[in-house]
Design a protein around this nucleic acid. Structure first.
Lengths: 126, 126
DNA sequence: ATGATATATGAATATATGCTCATATATTCA
DNA sequence: TGAATATATGAGCATATATTCATATATCAT
């Protein structure tokens, strides 16, 4: 029989899918958030801070990078509300802003390690 | 010899932090993973696919973008193992690869909803 | 005040990346 | 077979971005 397999819109679910899409603004914010995680320097910084609050010089020393680069990236992280900063004398002490950061981080970790979420214990890097 | 407040390494935890840092390779993979989430087009694609498996043309129609752009991004998502593809006739049906994707995605959602909108500097969306 | 230390920031640059266009590949149907 | 449809891909361009360098700002010690 002349069964029409594919013409125009292919999935009958498409209107349903469209109706379930969040606001564009929300999706942009989401992409912005993940983009901040999507750089190895920032990942290393977040990973360090998940272990302990640290000043800029310590982070730079830990990562073997220059102070300016770290400071620039800390600004990005701060603007994204992923880290908070407290002035302490001459130093700025940075720390993770909240536990969402840790959670997102660890989910990504599980993914790259191919470990099922919510399964057994895992080395806490934070 | 007066009291030395800060010289060289500032945090006594620094060696401990260093010892807890994962392998560089792992951190690069983690950044690579998040970078894939860090684009609004790919986020929209993932969001669509979290509702239903879809062919390329449907995704393009849904997002109002041209087929080539979507295809290029689907390749990125496939290489990152965030989506899987099944050939069905002339169409390629894409779907989320596993539930990690959904979980990471939803954690991000919680974060952006948790942050008070408009309370910080924001960049242009891309 | 001066000098030393710690961090922040603007400009410049090199690289990365997303999109478009044109085209190639793959599949279905007449 | 050839036409039509669906997707994939390479090249080129425009934009974004991560780093470095130089320098500004802020704090502490003398």
């Amino acid at each position: 029989m002349t069964n029409i397999q594919n013409r125009g819109i292919h999935s009958p679910d498409l209107p349903e899918v469209a109706s379930r899409m969040p606001e564009d603004e929300t999706l942009y914010e989401l992409a912005d958030l993940f983009r901040v995680f999507g750089d190895s320097t920032r990942i290393k910084i977040l990973c360090s801070l998940s272990a302990s609050d640290l000043c800029v010089a310590d982070i730079a020393a830990l990562l073997g990078m220059n102070q300016s680069a770290i400071s620039h990236q800390l600004r990005v992280l701060k603007q994204a509300r992923l880290v908070r900063v407290t002035r302490r004398g001459r130093s700025s002490i940075y720390g993770l802003d909240d536990d969402h950061v840790r959670t997102i981080f660890e989910q990504g970790f599980r993914h790259v390690r191919h470990i099922a979420p919510g399964s057994g214990e895992e080395e806490a890097h934070g």
